[in-house]
């Protein structure tokens, strides 16, 4: 790409997120990070799987978990994954407004997911007195699911700052990679959730 329109998307038919060296490096760096995240969550999952029967006389997973709320949360997060795909689609078509709109919907779905999770934890603590300190199962559960929730919080703050910071800038080869790395990170959060709802909730319901 020649110098005079290096930050202009109009004459570019390439993926704007990977048209510059900086964009390519960000992309690679994010995947390095995700490889590490996989290992991090692996140790949480392994700990949880080992300790999930160690309830120390406290509530068991069969007593605690309800299918309805987890199903709603899964649908919310899955849908937010699709809306960010739409946002990236509009980014590649150089449509900034529609990209912001779809990322806005993604953020709202993420907030809804988070609200459900906070409600869920509050419900366990108040109704069942099931806390981080109740049992080894409690510690393993809150560490794994809570850390995923923490990733959602971090992702939401990342997305909202991106959207606010670039609201008046429009789309350029400078900020397109930033949006793209966020979208990949957000999909990864969904990947982790797929295993959480299967391994923690669904397997926990099967007696």
């Amino acid at each position: 790409m020649s110098q005079d329109h290096s930050l202009n998307l109009k004459n570019s038919h390439e993926d704007p997120a990977k048209a510059t060296m900086e964009g390519k490096n960000k992309f690679l760096g994010l995947w390095f990070f995700l490889g590490g995240e996989t290992v991090l969550f692996a140790s949480f999952f392994a700990t949880y799987l080992s300790l999930r029967e160690s309830t120390a006389g406290g509530p068991t997973s069969q007593e605690l978990f309800g299918l309805e709320l987890v199903f709603i949360m899964t649908v919310l997060l899955l849908t937010s994954s699709l809306t960010s795909v739409y946002a990236i689609y509009h980014m590649k078509n150089n449509n900034f407004k529609k990209m912001q709109l779809w990322f806005g919907i993604t953020a709202l779905l993420g907030i809804a997911f988070l609200a459900c999770e906070i409600y869920e934890f509050a419900h366990y603590i108040i109704e069942y007195e099931f806390t981080f300190r109740s049992s080894a199962f409690g510690s393993a559960f809150y560490t794994l699911v809570g850390f995923h929730g923490g990733h959602v919080v971090f992702g939401l703050s990342w997305l909202i700052s991106l959207m606010v910071r670039n609201a008046k800038r429009g789309l350029s080869l400078y900020n397109a990679p930033k949006y793209n790395t966020f979208a990949i990170y957000w999909h990864f959060i969904d990947v982790v959730w797929v295993f959480i709802f299967t391994v923690v909730y669904l397997m926990g319901m099967v007696s």
């Binding site: 995947w31 995700l34 590490g36 995240e37 996989t38 290992v39 969550f41 140790s43 999952f45 799987l49």
Partner: peptide, 18 residues
């Protein structure tokens, strides 16, 4: 290769712990 490396370590960790 990065993500499959991560998945491989994940599988071994889960297997070991369980």
């Amino acid at each position: 290769s990065l993500i499959f490396g991560g998945i491989w370590i994940a599988a071994v960790t889960v297997l070991t712990f369980t």
